[in-house]
Simulated assay, not measured.
Amino acid sequence: MKDNSVMKNKRIIRYDGKSILEVDDDIANEFPLTIFVNGEEFATMVCTPTYLEELIKGFLASEGIIRFLDEIDSFTIDEDRGFAYVELKNKQSLNTDSHSKRFIGSCCGKSRQFYFQNDAKTAKTIMKKTKISVDQCIDLMKTMQEDSTDFHSTGGLHNAALCTRENLLVSRSDIGRHNALDKVYGYCLDNRIPLADKVIAFSGRISSEVLLKVSKIGAGIILSKSAPTTLALDLAEDLGITTVGFIRGNRLNVYTHPERIEEITD
């Protein structure tokens, strides 16, 4: 059964190389959500309207607004209007020097502002030396992709998954790749999951923003079917994160901290 919050069905015209057909197609659902913190508008993000509570909690934690869930006094989502209201136990106004009201887009590139003070405060250097094999990297990426039924239906979603060395624990999808990671982060906060020995599998490019978010989550290894950027790799070196990209078929590239990959260090 299709999740109507993830996708909508639309009648389209398709050319298949030989003929023109009218067909029904599944389109990824795009939903604007405005978050108010202590009565102040903090951000509007464009997202897939699933696991919204996880998304908001993960987003606020990655932005440095909260560190623990018990800092939240009340939490309300008005999904019909696209508003979320978060009241913190600390009623002071947000520090506008380190945060700005901004539009968080679902696209790549300049969809998020970078190098706010909160990034320096919330990014974690990963010291855990959990190792993973090449075969495990390939298997985790394959499992995430095979489980991504919403992507196969729409072609318009990113996926992020929290994994152990052997298994995929939880996977989340969203039109925004940052949002997918925030949903995973929110799940971890809700379930008090220890993260230092965990792995993030990811469907998109490893940008500096994605790398910082993985650092804030606290995972030491990120796997992707796509490429990294130079700044992401510089940050990964500094923050102790192993980045593995271009995981396709039985091939992959290890870019930083290869000591966590068993075949390389054994």
Rank of each mutant, 00 (worst) to 15 (best):
A196D: 15
V210L: 07
L168C: 14
S226C: 06
I175R: 04
I206H: 01
L252Q: 03
L223I: 11
K216R: 13
C188Y: 04
E259M: 02
A180P: 09
S203Q: 06
V214F: 03
L181N: 02
A232N: 10
S224K: 00
L212G: 07
V214R: 00
T229L: 09
L223T: 03
N167G: 06
L195N: 08
L231S: 10
S173W: 12
R248L: 12
I217N: 04
G176T: 05
T242R: 07
G240L: 02
G245W: 00
N167V: 08
N191E: 14
N191F: 13
E166S: 15
S171V: 08
E166V: 10
P258Y: 11
K216C: 03
I222S: 04
G218V: 10
L168I: 15
V184K: 10
I247V: 14
I221G: 04
R172G: 04
G245F: 01
L223G: 02
V210S: 04
N253C: 12
A219V: 12
A227Q: 04
H257P: 08
L223P: 01
S173A: 12
L239C: 06
A180E: 10
V184I: 15
D190S: 13
P194A: 11
L231N: 09
A196R: 11
L233V: 04
L169P: 11
V214T: 14
E237P: 01
I241C: 01
I175K: 05
S224L: 00
S224N: 01
V214A: 12
S171R: 14
I175C: 04
G176F: 03
S203Y: 05
G176A: 15
V170K: 15
P228W: 01
G204M: 04
A180R: 04
T164H: 12
A180F: 04
D197I: 09
I175N: 02
S171T: 12
P194I: 06
D182T: 11
I200P: 09
G249V: 09
Y255N: 03
A236C: 13
G204W: 00
E259A: 06
G249H: 07
F246V: 05
L231M: 10
T229R: 02
R251D: 11
V244K: 09
D174A: 09
L223A: 05
N250L: 07
S226E: 15
I217P: 01
R205F: 02
A219Y: 05
F202T: 01
L181Y: 00
C163S: 14
A236D: 09
T230H: 10
K213F: 03
H257R: 14
S208R: 14
S207P: 11
D182M: 15
F246G: 00
T243R: 00
R248W: 01
A232M: 08
V244L: 10
T230C: 07
T242Y: 10
L168D: 12
